[in-house]
Design a protein around this nucleic acid. Structure first.
Lengths: 341, 341
DNA sequence: AATATAAATGCAATCGATTGCGCATTTGCA
DNA sequence: TGCAAATGCGCAATCGATTGCATTTATATT
């Protein structure tokens, strides 16, 4: 009685069947030119009939690579980030890479833990947008030290030299502010995110530069820094509106805050955009459909993800050795919340 | 001169250092009781000093498992799905599993390709919500045949016996319809999704049952089936409103359609909810903030993901052998688009 | 002290695929 | 016909961790 093979067949099973060596089978399946076409065909036929599937674990062990790209985002279910993930997946899948995903919940401790785990699991490369709270970077420097490709997107770390895909936050902030000025707003406030992140720093600098260029005074009292969650929008705008000289326009660091600001003002009977103009950032889907619709800056999330994946695959496959910082263009989308001309 | 070790140290390096065997090192690091506490401590100290990190690839090969859970969704950047992913990641990470992700873009061909790839890559389990277009299931049956844990969420396949996490779509559809009836709407239309998906089938059945129970006629002309994208909302509602006896309420199969229906009607000067009531499904973030805000059914995406991960981990770790179908409760959220009392 | 028993560790095969080197067979050309 | 070159393939080590079985060492028992 034959032993019933319940386990998956291996190249050795194929080899035995054809009375050849496993090396030949391996080479044949990898289309190695050293094997004749005839043998290759025989081997592939037997492989099919046996229902052979290569064991990627074994192959990966031997080749010292995991065929996997790691991606770490602050929050998976934020439209911008899930779009980036979608873009990464799009390119990576076509190139034969797996994408493993994890979220930091914007907390440094979780981020460190995730990154270390990905390191242990030997991802071939890591794509990351750092958490708001992260301010030490040893866990990321580790990747540089071990020469594991690392790509930042959106939120990058200046002191780490590697590939980066960002948007032009400075110019974004500049354009938002210029737009508000063009619409006749005179006293423009800014709700900024944590300034340890260059994204928020740059947006703020763009804001300041636009004020300066237009001969408007930069008033520190008009800038509030918080984490830009919907909970923190109301207290911030309340503080601003209680100033002796309140603003007539708010440049919000993201759409979430813009929305909560808008809701707060609406409840107070403030007309938007007539009394106060509002602009957000990121072009979350809701910003288009609320009323008034929210002016904002569109960031190409999907394209960012695609580009990040392309870059990291290049590095993994050693086709490129120099680092680049790619700045993707942003687009100002003028909607009802800031149009009064 | 010593040979400079650039490569990662292995258990053999540790063994050599201490002049013991690799088996002992392996056992010590795995906290095997057969190794004395004293040796364990020595070994762990050396491991630390050498900067040892276990090679999970090797370990996985030997243990014939990848320590990885696959998740396949139609679209990553849809709030509901990204919330599920988020929930899966939450539980899986804590349990020490990696999560690899891929999206089918709601296309059968891509889904098949993804699922086969995950099979080849030997995921320990697969969590999936099938694509709208999928109507053959051999790629999924393969997982059952090979006894690789498989969990469906939201969109399940009836003919495959395995774990399933769904919401009570029937009751959801029923409640939406009952609610509309309670609000005094008399002629209620339904925009349904493809009926090969039980989710949409069930919602529709709930709709029919509510009509029946309230003595309202079920009129097939009031039911339109499409893929529920924003593009297809307008033609569908147009067709309905052109009926000799148009509806006064629309139960939309998802929020996306509900929104496009609403925009269409608003342009035509139809008042919502006074003239026509609208209810969606899924509680996308925008449904709360548009005006009028859209009544909808909340689906607990994050909780679904968590539950799916828990179930599949149980199966992977062989703690549970029977299949269960978990029906999570939905919640009717009444908002402006359907409240006229 | 001698033997029985328990405790601690080592040997070597294994997981499945890959690859440098070498051997054997075939082909080419004078 | 004879010899070199090209072609086709196999051997065995390797990737790093795990584990059944064997062996050594320490402790207990009479």
């Amino acid at each position: 009685m034959n032993k019933i093979k319940t386990a998956d067949p291996t190249i050795h099973d194929i080899a035995r069947e054809l009375e050849i060596s496993a090396s030949t089978v391996s080479r044949a399946l990898n289309n190695n030119p050293r094997i004749s076409l005839k043998t290759k065909e025989k081997i592939k036929a037997v492989a099919d009939s046996l229902g052979y599937r290569p064991n990627t674990l074994a192959s990966n062990l031997r080749n010292k690579k995991s065929n996997t790209i790691g991606i770490v985002v602050p929050l998976i279910n934020r439209y911008f980030f899930s779009s980036v993930i979608s873009g990464v997946e799009d390119v990576a899948f076509k190139a034969g890479f797996n994408v493993v995903i994890s979220q930091s919940n914007d907390m440094a401790a979780k981020e460190i833990s995730i990154v270390q785990s990905m390191f242990l699991n030997r991802v071939d490369g890591l794509i990351i947008s750092i958490a708001m709270q992260t301010c030490t970077f040893d866990h990321l420097k580790l990747f540089r030290k071990k020469h594991i490709p690392l790509v930042f997107f959106d939120r990058a770390v200046p002191e780490i030299e590697t590939d980066k895909i960002v948007v032009d936050d400075f110019f974004g902030g500049f354009r938002v502010t210029q737009h508000l000025i063009d619409q006749g707003y005179k006293r423009i406030a800014h709700l900024a995110g944590p300034l340890n992140l260059t994204t928020y720093q740059d947006r703020k600098n763009g804001y300041i530069e636009a004020l300066r260029k237009n001969g408007l005074e930069y008033d520190e009292k008009l800038v509030i820094i918080n984490t830009l969650t919907s909970d923190e929008g109301a207290p911030a705008i309340e503080q601003l509106m209680n100033l002796p000289d309140p603003p007539d326009a708010i440049f919000c660091g993201n759409d979430t805050t813009a929305l909560s600001v808008m809701i707060y003002l609406r409840e107070k009977g403030v007309r938007i955009p007539e009394d106060v103009g509002i602009v957000g950032f990121s072009n979350e889907p809701f910003s288009k459909v609320v009323s008034p619709s929210i002016s904002t800056i569109a960031q190409p999330g999907f394209a960012m993800g695609q580009k990040a994946a392309e870059l990291i695959i290049q590095k993994i496959e050693n086709k490129e050795r120099t680092f680049q910082t790619i700045v993707l263009p942003t687009e100002l989308i003028v909607r009802e919340s800031s149009r009064r001309k």
